[in-house]
Nucleic acid binder design. Sequence first.
DNA 1: TCATCGGGATGAATCGATTCAATTAATACG
DNA 2: CGTATTAATTGAATCGATTCATCCCGATGA
Lengths: 360, 360
Amino acid sequence: MTTIKEVAKRAGVSVGTASNVLSGTVPVSPARRESVLAAIRDLGYHPSDVARSLKLRRTNMLGLVVSDITNPFFAQLVRGAEEAALAQGYLLLTFNTDDRVEREKHVLGVLRGRRVDGVLLVVAPIRGESSHIAETIARGTPVVCLDRVPRGVSVDSVTVDNARAARECVEHLLEMRHRRIGILTGSMLLATAQERMRGYRRALQAHGLSVDPALVKEGNFRMESGYELASELFSSPNRPTALFVSNGLMAIGALRAVADLGLRCPEDVALATFDDLPLSEVLSPPLTSVAQPAYQMGYEGARILFDRIKSKRMDGPVRVRLQAQLKIRQSSAFARSEVTERQRPEGQASSVPMPSIEPD
Amino acid sequence: MTTIKEVAKRAGVSVGTASNVLSGTVPVSPARRESVLAAIRDLGYHPSDVARSLKLRRTNMLGLVVSDITNPFFAQLVRGAEEAALAQGYLLLTFNTDDRVEREKHVLGVLRGRRVDGVLLVVAPIRGESSHIAETIARGTPVVCLDRVPRGVSVDSVTVDNARAARECVEHLLEMRHRRIGILTGSMLLATAQERMRGYRRALQAHGLSVDPALVKEGNFRMESGYELASELFSSPNRPTALFVSNGLMAIGALRAVADLGLRCPEDVALATFDDLPLSEVLSPPLTSVAQPAYQMGYEGARILFDRIKSKRMDGPVRVRLQAQLKIRQSSAFARSEVTERQRPEGQASSVPMPSIEPD
DNA sequence: TCATCGGGATGAATCGATTCAATTAATACG
DNA sequence: CGTATTAATTGAATCGATTCATCCCGATGA
């Protein structure tokens, strides 16, 4: 691997001059500049970002810690963060924690060793306070939390207005004349799960209904969990006529449970869910779902992080809250639908354009 | 940020000794070892991997370049690579190229600057030869290609036996009495697409059938492309009775097209596809699909890379070929099915356990 | 008593860049 | 022509680790 010293020697200049040609911050006479550029070309020189990072005490790398990249929601979020990062010349060191705090802590330690300039973090559920995050920030590494805000920590964040979106979604089910509406939540240690639960409760209360504990099931945001909880819920004697699921993977599990129990959706049970998976539209029935701006969340998070990094401000936390969008499809049709299978309107789903994998 | 020099000073020893305590390669007297450890604790010292990388001329980082992480197949592959990497103390710098060669080239340049120890690469389709890959290897950065092998380059690879899997899949459709079987391929610039096409052709030939060009549609492995091509294919006067789709995203598009055309699957048209998405089972109908060992591919690729890195061998390329597994479900039921909707056997799909997101 | 041996410890050199004080060259001005 | 001024260039110090030649000192043996 050739170094700047070799370039300088071949061009017959000092390393300082060679460096100045590279950076362009200090003027260099055309003649020398040319010979340096020629040397670079001849030797196929590429500067070492490692050496540069050491000297500048800045790595131009960000840590990106998510729960699980195979969850389409996080995959989108990662893409958004990547786009923003690359545009600023930053690279992403990506990690999955599978929602395990010990992995999260470990990863934060690793990132410290690597001297990343900042961290984008989707926190794992944890009982008690997250001191390791506060410590990371105190040590001088800015952190921006995405999707979920940890308790007891003052930290920048980009989240979705979960309560509002959940409420809107459940209200839609109420408008569809449902009165017994169940809910599958994620781990109640997570702010997102709590907020979605709150939205559910508010919607019911606004309609003079109260929450029936038998219809509330706490899971862990995974498909298996959705399957199991929905199975329990739907095989109980007086099962709900509609179900609000608080994330996409659980919804898929729930749908599977519905099918396995020989129930039909939406005729026997209506479904509405958080997360608009690319497949929500192709499923049968197409799923009514809350489309979260995952890509934007990653993108915005990275921008906030850059701002922290560049300004070096340590002032009060920036909290950005994005709005989600309810997409009404056929899984939440009227209870005791009057229309038959054949006649049911197809308008809703078909009029929506094909979802694009490519953001923007 | 505290340095080893400060640790040494506080412990009253030389930096050399402090370093020796850290590495443990050189014996240090118990008394000094203790005082160094105490200093480390007091100061909250974490060694800088940047400085260490510079000195050791090794970064313990791998580049991971994939097409698009929102494709569940690649998400799984990334998880496999991450698992293997972390186990060896390596970190992953992850990039998406969206199958654009210019991005691939750019990323390879960036990774060069970062001095990664190796690269895991899912190549983008390209016309002509991929000299940039050969150059990367020649410069001393080992590369392992995953899923797709570039043409004209001698490089390590981990791929799936696409031809065999495709053939098996199409033969299954033939056994289901289909005779007019269409195919949606990916970009024919990709080895994977070619091989799957070959498998399709071989299966037909083995049954005395020849490939009807009107039933062959080339796409780009994306959902939109699957939708468009399937729409064309199925609205033609004498449409196929079955369709073999060469990747999961296109299959979802195709399924959508089938629905939009008012056709039923499998009654009007049977479907079988590459890629066993987590939702394949939940779709209606559950999709017959070729389950690729994506996770394993990432894992194996990383292992091969470590071997190259550590052994520094530059000998002939290692080519690992993994086998895929055909999962027969209801989307490929008998043509002109005698069984009615209600009576159709549910065995196949329901007996399969819930797909796990967690590998292993 | 003196030479030998060896385990520990030291500190300078090194990795490959950036940067800045010092120096040199070029130009302008009186 | 000498000096002040500006512009370009140099080279050494620095970032924070590792490593190795060298040195120190106590123990051992003759």
